[in-house]
Design a protein around this nucleic acid. Structure first.
Length: 194
DNA sequence: GTACAGATTGAG
DNA sequence: TCAATCTGTACT
């Protein structure tokens, strides 16, 4: 099988473009013991910029937590939610324009569902703050591979993002979650007030 | 210094 | 339906 590490500039496009084109690519990483783990990306969410009310960088606010979002595309932005789950994001777009996508699910070769969900995925791969700011074009710890799987637009579905009701009706309903139709590990939509 | 909510998950 | 668990952020 042909394998090619995806170069960093792949991520220097809009969050929506990168979100759609990363589907079907492989996330590969080595954990602390050097063991390689990998999975096929099947579900992501786009956070599209400082005007996106659901984004941590809303209104361009920079904090110690989100400062990686202001790097150019291709760097890791990872943070802890609910005191116990890490969320893996890859920055997209230009420097100083905070956009990124959140990886919500990948398919693995092992047990079904072991990386279905943004928190479970990070637990499976061992992602934590040690990966903050990694360059996926160069890092020995985390990268993406193109294995020549052709994904057609008709295979991509989109829907609203999960768990961001606080951002208000407009942003909660925007179709910024992208996934491959037919994958068995897609997050169930939880109920929303909208 | 104190308060509080969160881009989740799994159990009941 | 709800608790687990803790950091970042806002406010005193």
């Amino acid at each position: 099988m042909k394998r090619r590490r995806i170069p960093r500039y792949f991520f220097e496009r809009s969050a929506v473009e990168v979100s759609r084109s990363i589907l079907g690519k492989y996330l590969v990483a080595s954990d602390r013991s050097g063991k390689i783990k990998e999975g096929r990306v099947v579900e992501v969410e786009a956070y599209v910029g400082p005007h996106d009310r659901a984004s941590h960088a809303y209104k361009g606010k920079i904090t110690p937590r989100n400062k990686a979002e202001f790097l150019r595309g291709g760097y890791v932005y990872i943070y802890l939610v609910y005191g116990m789950y890490w969320q893996l994001n890859i920055v997209t777009g230009k420097k100083d324009h905070p956009e990124c996508f959140l990886i919500r699910a990948v398919e693995t070769e092992g047990r079904a569902g072991e990386a279905s969900g943004p928190g479970k995925l990070c637990r499976y791969f061992g992602f934590d703050k040690d990966f903050y700011g990694e360059d996926v074009g160069k890092s020995p710890k985390i990268w993406f591979e193109d294995r020549n799987e052709k994904i057609f637009p008709k295979n991509i579905a989109c829907s609203r993002r999960v768990g961001i009701d606080y951002a208000g009706r407009f942003w909660a309903l925007r179709k910024l979650r992208f996934y491959l139709k037919g994958s068995s590990v897609i997050t169930k939509l939880n109920k929303s007030k909208f």
